[in-house]
Simulated assay, not measured.
Amino acid sequence: MNSMHYSDAFHCHKISGGMVEAPCIISPDDICFYLCDPKTGIVLEDGHALKGQSLAHKIVIFPSGKGSSVVQTDGLYQLAMNGNAPKAIVVQYPDTVLVASCIILDIPMVDRVDPAFYNQIDSGVMLHLDADGELIRVMPT
């Protein structure tokens, strides 16, 4: 670990391993990755809290996945094949399809994050997610 200083750290539970650093985007709504544009990562779903915003290259924080196994897997796969997948996923209620997709596509995924985490971060904050070390750090601004 380098000598960088972190302002806050939160424990989590590893589902799919890896370590990334990226800005986060928070959704109060469940996400169906099939309803995202694979060429941009932009959420297309009408009525979704993140409609018009891109999930590409971000740590995406949301309650759960939604949609059938085929559309959920294909949506995340299409994003990944176009270089627009999320850098990592923080989910409150993981489902088996989302878990399997993240493992296959090598996207770090965690759950069971310290509840204080959700009260202390906003979209756009830079996070350092270490799924293997089961820790999320908020980077200082």
Rank of each mutant, 00 (worst) to 15 (best):
K66W: 13
A56H: 02
D95F: 05
P86N: 08
V97H: 02
V99E: 11
K87D: 12
S101R: 03
T96H: 13
V43N: 01
T40L: 03
I107C: 05
V70Y: 09
P108M: 00
K39R: 12
R112I: 01
V90D: 08
L44G: 07
G83W: 03
I61K: 03
N82S: 09
Q78S: 13
Q72E: 15
C36T: 15
M109Q: 08
I89Y: 02
T40A: 11
S64W: 09
D111E: 03
I103A: 12
V90A: 07
S64V: 10
D111I: 06
A80D: 02
S69F: 05
D46R: 04
D106F: 14
P38Q: 13
Q53I: 09
P94Y: 01
G67Y: 00
E45Q: 15
V60G: 01
I42C: 14
D95I: 10
A56P: 04
T96A: 12
A88T: 05
A85D: 01
Q92N: 08
A80M: 14
S101E: 02
G67I: 07
L76K: 05
S68V: 15
I61D: 02
G83T: 01
I61L: 04
P94W: 02
G47M: 06
R112Q: 13
I104K: 15
G67W: 01
I89E: 01
I104H: 12
P86F: 06
V60D: 00
A49S: 15
K66S: 11
G83Y: 06
V43Y: 10
V70T: 09
R112P: 04
T96C: 10
G83A: 11
I103D: 00
D46V: 09
V60F: 00
K39L: 03
L55Y: 07
L55R: 05
I42D: 02
N84K: 04
G52N: 05
P38V: 10
L79R: 03
H57W: 01
Y93D: 12
A85I: 00
F62V: 13
Q72N: 10
V97I: 09
A80I: 10
D111V: 04
S69C: 13
L79D: 09
D74Y: 12
V60E: 00
L105D: 12
L98F: 02
L79P: 09
L55C: 05
T40R: 08
G52S: 05
K87I: 04
S64K: 08
I61Q: 02
E45G: 13
P63T: 08
Q78T: 11
A85F: 03
C102Y: 05
V60C: 00
I42G: 08
S68C: 11
A88Q: 00
G41D: 00
S54I: 04
Y77E: 03
